[in-house]
Write a protein that binds this DNA or RNA. Structure first.
Lengths: 302, 302
DNA sequence: GCATCTAAATAGGGTTAATCTATTTAGATG
DNA sequence: CATCTAAATAGATTAACCCTATTTAGATGC
């Protein structure tokens, strides 16, 4: 149990610096008896004399207290720094932002976002954690991350969301596929074909849900949790796929050409959102990052 | 103006360490609403959210507060150290003792005192300041020193004194002096002889006062503020002197033999005292040093 | 799905502590 | 010796702190 307060130390140091209780009182905008009582109490609580009172000529620190006074100064300085740190994190845009990101979104969007952030807010350090939607949501709840960049799908309660981009799913075909000749493709045309499913939550249920909402059931020929593997399998003619993430370039890692076609059906788009805890008021850094995201994605959409 | 208290930080850290307000309350022996209110107030005062509340599963620190929490821990640790420092300086005998010493007393008495102190209280560091009686007294008032080793002569008001040793003045003669043959000497015999005066305050007035109290006036042939120079001048036959400090050995720095004789007259002895400020309650270290002094000087007297 | 459990928030009241103004004490100074 | 300066004290007011009792709300088990 601590037997002193920072306020008391402030008073003490002011007394020593000004050389009198009156001076300290003036400096700190309190009355002289306030100082007198506070110092007396501090001396009692610590069980040591701190000041020598010279009636008409102020006070001086007593020899045995010199070492305590030194530590008290350190303590007050650290306290001031703590205060400053809290203040500046409220006003200036300096500090660390921890961002959780649904892993498949990261390679496509984060490089551009980070570049923008560094440009506009060079003093903000971004710490990125990549994981599943579930992991991101848990990170938010655990306080590990302040914001999450996710699809607005299967998110738990208690999160606020800022929609950033609405993406229509697209069909991937090997360029040699018979349907590749068409400009648009319908779910009906695809339903009987072998499909390569991106098998990660929540994408899995989203893609299969597209068919089910139209009364079809896709034929899953292959599953993979890796976007690049899915593209590779499609490139090698093992089936078509439906994806929302579209990397620049239509070539797979092993050099095959892909044909990418829009869906004819009007389906529910995937929504990329920035989310955070409802119970956690976003700070200035979070707000800054939200603006950067909004700018960046609105530019992507146009 | 600091907008937080150490108590609040204690509560905060306890919440984080125990993971719940209830746990913190139990740990710190206060009620749960006390913690709740204190944290809420702290968050308001600092303008930042610190904890994420999960209704039935306690709290976690929020990401943006991680850095603040780190500093808060430092602050609390330093505060605990400060407290410990104050506590131990009250009980254990560890620390620094600043001693003012009337310079002529130093070479005779301090070596033995310091050796004893080191022996009995090895963790007490002694800082010695040598100066005039006046300087020592001012050092006490200024808080530079805690104790003073002085003659109880011409001391200002406001000091308490512990008498350590009562010393009779002694007559110094060149060994070849005509009076050196006598076992004792009276002031009357000396009054007409040339005198070498140790000319430092308060010794000066003490020595001349010895004669004046008997109705004589000494013939001052030489003056010096240095004890060794006085002894040297006497050794070379330039006069007698009266001193209270008697170094071991009756040879001057330049090799002359001195004769040292007691005074026949009953005069006021010089009293060596340990003094301190009346307004300043002596600490444990001061008390320890006083005991060491009492032991040492009582041994000298016997 | 409903009851139970856990933990945080809120309400209301009582006690302590901090601060104020006014006055007194006491050493320093001319 | 009167005056000045600064600390200490007295007494009253206010704010802060902490308590018990209760409510809210999410999590968990049957």
């Amino acid at each position: 149990m601590l037997r002193f307060t920072l306020r008391q130390l402030e008073y003490l140091i002011a007394c020593i610096d000004t050389g009198s209780l009156v001076g300290a009182a003036a400096q700190l905008n309190v009355s002289q008896p306030t100082i007198s009582a506070a110092i007396a109490k501090l001396e009692n609580q610590l069980g040591a004399q701190l000041l020598i009172r010279h009636h008409a000529q102020g006070v001086v620190p007593c020899a045995s207290a010199q070492v305590h006074i030194k530590t008290a100064r350190h303590l007050l300085q650290l306290a001031a720094e703590f205060q400053l740190e809290c203040d500046s994190s409220g006003s200036e845009l300096t500090g660390v932002l921890s961002l959780g990101c649904f892993a498949p979104l990261a390679p496509t969007y984060l490089p551009g976002l980070i570049a923008r952030l560094n440009d506009q807010y060079p003093d903000v350090e971004l710490k990125v954690f990549e994981g599943t939607q579930r992991e991101v949501a848990e990170g938010l709840r655990a306080g590990t991350q302040q914001l999450g960049l996710v699809y607005d799908l299967d998110l738990p309660e208690g999160l606020y969301k800022h929609e950033l981009l609405s993406v229509q799913p697209q069909v991937l075909l090997p360029s040699s596929h018979k349907l590749a000749a068409k400009k648009q493709l319908s779910l009906q045309e695809l339903a009987a074909e072998p499909m390569v499913l991106l098998d990660v939550s929540p994408s899995r249920t989203y893609f299969t849900g597209l068919f089910q909402s139209q009364g079809f059931n896709p034929v899953i020929a292959h599953r993979s949790s890796s976007l690049e593997l899915v593209r590779g399998l499609v490139g090698r003619g093992l089936g078509y796929s439906i994806l929302v993430t579209r990397p620049a370039g239509d070539t797979t890692y092993d050099g095959q050409k892909l044909a990418i076609r829009p869906l004819r059906d009007r389906v529910e788009p995937s929504r990329i959102s920035l989310c955070g805890l409802e119970s956690s008021r976003p700070g200035n850094i979070s707000e800054a990052f939200r603006r950067v995201c909004a700018d960046y994605f609105s530019q992507l959409a146009s």
